[in-house]
Nucleic acid binder design. Sequence first.
DNA 1: GTCTATATCATGATAGAC
DNA 2: GTCTATCATGATATAGAC
Lengths: 197, 197
Amino acid sequence: MYSGSVSTPERLIEATRELLWERGYVGTSPRAVLQRAGAGQGSMYHHFTGKPQLALTAIRRTADEMRTTVEAVLGGPGSPSERIEGYLLRERDVLRGCPIGRLTMDPDVVADDELRAPVDETLDWLRERLAAVVEEGREQGEFASSLDGEEIAATIVATVQGGYVLARASGSTGAFDTAVRGLLSLLAAASPARTDV
Amino acid sequence: MYSGSVSTPERLIEATRELLWERGYVGTSPRAVLQRAGAGQGSMYHHFTGKPQLALTAIRRTADEMRTTVEAVLGGPGSPSERIEGYLLRERDVLRGCPIGRLTMDPDVVADDELRAPVDETLDWLRERLAAVVEEGREQGEFASSLDGEEIAATIVATVQGGYVLARASGSTGAFDTAVRGLLSLLAAASPARTDV
DNA sequence: GTCTATATCATGATAGAC
DNA sequence: GTCTATCATGATATAGAC
């Protein structure tokens, strides 16, 4: 429940962001949004044209927030491999999953180009950003020259997104951590400097 | 539409399996099931107690089918690394995603232990099965001794599940294939016999 | 066993009072 | 700008005819 000095549209957007994360687009009703935002029945249709536009606004904000959070790690200090490790080990609410990635399992989001666009753009940006860091690491001799930046980046993002699936299936975070450790061990074994065969 | 000599319960189960794959549990209504199965309004409640029990029956069948399909590859001929590659490169309807994994993004499935159980058990079985193959490969010197079977298995399953996310976000299969190629290149680079540094 | 009819509540949206 | 009706439709389930 958002209340106090925050404006009604703001409360509607935040309530929608939460519900989209928890229940997805199909599972989120205007009624539930209004209730969580503490707003009256018609008030959502005064500020937004309907559920799709409100959802689009919410998704865009979540996407922006995610880029900012990720860039703080990938664009921060440390060697390329340290930054990738930092991304993989960063604090996460694993059982809630990814607020952007989960939308790809929503049929009404995937079917609507406008709703899908911010999801696509965010995951695309993430892959490109990671690919650049991997390439940087390869130039510095941290990764084997046989590795391709875009491929490794896709594998990293996929491991994280799939890690959420495994964690949510089992109801515990263990499987996510295990998948990440496996990926880190592969990256370490793929280092030219390895001595652990 | 299933028709002909197939029984009504059978048609209801198959229609439910399709809809759960396409739209998830929350997005699948009894009405849609009945329509696709070509059955009358009340007929579903004669054979099943309601939507949850019908869905459970459908999910269990899909889970069984998936095990059989996977076991054909992982328990088939070839070296451990060849079988893992076979699993990763096997034919898939990538844009439809995984009929089991997608259910982990369904709030009503995750919240219900009975519905979540077959999802959890299937992904758990898959990880154990892959872990055994990885361990086998390690013993035969195909993989570096520093790798852990359970970890690599989790990474493999996560890459596939996350690959679906990336593919569905972009609306094309490319990102799935890229993620899989990345994982295969890491597995190759982690081979004791590599000469590609 | 299958069908039609019906009941109850939720969904997504609109109209109009204040 | 916000609120309380109100509406048509869909979701989930039951009753009872055939």
